[in-house]
Design a protein around this nucleic acid. Structure first.
Length: 392
RNA sequence: GCUGGAAUCGUCUAGUGGCAAUGACAAGAGACUGUAAAUCUCUCGCCUUCGGGCUUCGUAGGUUCGAGUCCUACUUCCAGCA
């Protein structure tokens, strides 16, 4: 079972440490979205230096390229990508449902590769197998996202997610046993792992169940109960797209989920309020593509809200993006220079902007952790959000 | 000097009788939440009560119901010949 220690609580919020085979994650923590085993525009060294504690890769993308077998051959995603810290994989469910022409039945999902159009299928079992081969520390159960916001669709999606969770749990446990045996055999035979098959994979890998139910709190409650009953290592909370109403939903879900297991809020964290509300109502980790995507598109976080560095008004602005930020961008360069890099479409523009935005959300989440530890969360939340969103 | 060719939005470009006029770039702005995203959207002659109105395709004339498109002259540029 994944070890999770809680150091301090405040209502549903908690400060803790997730102990993974690749190290600890001090929570609340923002996990970098490394969809294709890389955070776009950033090296692992840069991610490490900006303070990231963990990354989340995506099973769908890695199944397409380079294929889970190849990552397995490399010794797992940590070895493969040289990110020697905790890793998560998302199941691929979310991506597949965003593709056109997906065919869903009880068994799984048939879809076409967005790269070459090849017809493929993913099932709860195949997602688990792929995730075990990829070898992240924490896996997400293969879930079903609703195709609309309607109650009926949400209920159907939730029920299918639950049915698939049963199969994910069974397959996870089978693979866990298999890998553990392989690991023991390898140690008996030669004392050290060859770089083949399962023998060199991290043999401890953990499964999070994913809570669905959309904006309907009765469904959320039902889903939380069901997921908890399966006794997974932790929980993902999926299908959340905005902070509106998220507080009530998280109150419902996180009051039901067992307190001693970590909770990951899937895909949320583009807006600072997402992380404040998520942490306040009991989520421990977050991931979001927003910070790096927006960075590549020139939208940069500041304490006074987001700015578009491509705007003409920054051409002569020779001040740092933020005075009180220690990221590589803010410490060394001016807004005018970054503006120039964007206008001339230099790769470095995206690199520096990504470093800043990723640092911003990672650091913000760390500050939320600190504020919970020293009992200043409410004040910090109020001050930060009022300034960021320019409200009184 | 002669003979050809060309002049269209900041730039390049489409356009050979019904056009405020094509496309690209540049410029200005916006979007982005488990990444089909180094992507996408909008604006880009002037005015507008968003119906439309006005002024435009080197310059000046002309033909025509109608001209960026045809004719004449001029100006500038390019190529070849001297």
């Amino acid at each position: 079972m994944l070890k999770f220690d809680i150091e301090k609580r405040k209502g549903l919020a908690r400060v803790g440490v997730i102990h993974t085979p690749h190290g600890d994650i001090k929570t609340p923590a923002f996990v970098g979205a490394a969809t294709r085993a890389t955070v776009k525009a950033l090296t692992m060294k840069e991610m490490n230096e900006l303070g990231s504690q963990a990354i989340l890769a995506n099973t769908y993308h890695l199944v397409l390229r380079p294929g889970p077998e190849l990552i397995q051959e490399a010794g797992g995603i940590a070895e493969y990508s040289s990110w020697h810290k905790p890793t998560f994989t998302d199941s691929g469910g979310f991506q597949i449902f965003s593709l056109p022409n997906v065919k869903i039945n009880e068994n799984g999902v048939k879809f076409k590769s967005h790269i070459d159009g090849a017809s493929l299928e993913m099932t709860p079992e195949s997602s688990m197998q792929a995730q075990w081969a990829i070898g992240a520390d924490i896996h997400m159960a293969f879930d079903h996202l609703a195709k609309s916001e309607s109650y009926e669709d949400m209920k159907t999606a939730m029920e299918r997610t639950h049915a698939w969770l049963d199969r994910c749990v069974a397959e996870h446990s089978r693979l866990n046993e298999k890998v553990r045996k392989q690991h023991c055999k390898t140690i008996r035979d030669n004392g050290s792992g060859s770089r083949n098959a399962f023998s060199c994979l991290p043999y401890e890998q953990y499964l999070y169940a994913v809570v669905q139910g959309g904006t309907f709190n009765d469904l959320r409650a039902e889903s939380a109960k069901y997921c908890a009953s399966k006794n997974p290592d932790g929980f993902g909370i999926g299908g959340v797209f905005t902070a509106d109403g998220m507080d009530e939903m998280l109150k419902t879900v996180n009051s039901i989920l067992p307190e001693d297991k970590p909770r990951h809020l899937l895909g949320m964290g583009q807006e600072p309020i997402d992380i404040f509300v998520g942490a306040e109502y009991g989520c421990d980790t977050f991931d979001c593509v927003g910070p790096t995507r927006m960075a590549r598109n020139g939208s940069l976080y500041t304490n006074d809200g987001r700015i578009n560095i491509k705007n003409a008004k920054f051409a002569h602005d020779f001040t740092p993006l933020m005075d009180d930020c220690d990221c590589e961008l803010c410490k060394n360069y001016t807004r005018a220079y970054l503006h120039h890099l964007f206008k001339t479409d230099e790769i470095t523009a995206k690199v520096l902007a990504s470093i800043h935005n990723e640092h911003f959300v990672v650091h913000l989440t760390d500050q939320i952790r600190e504020s919970l530890l020293n009992d200043s969360f409410d004040e910090f939340k109020k001050t930060f959000l009022a300034r960021y969103y320019n409200t009184k």
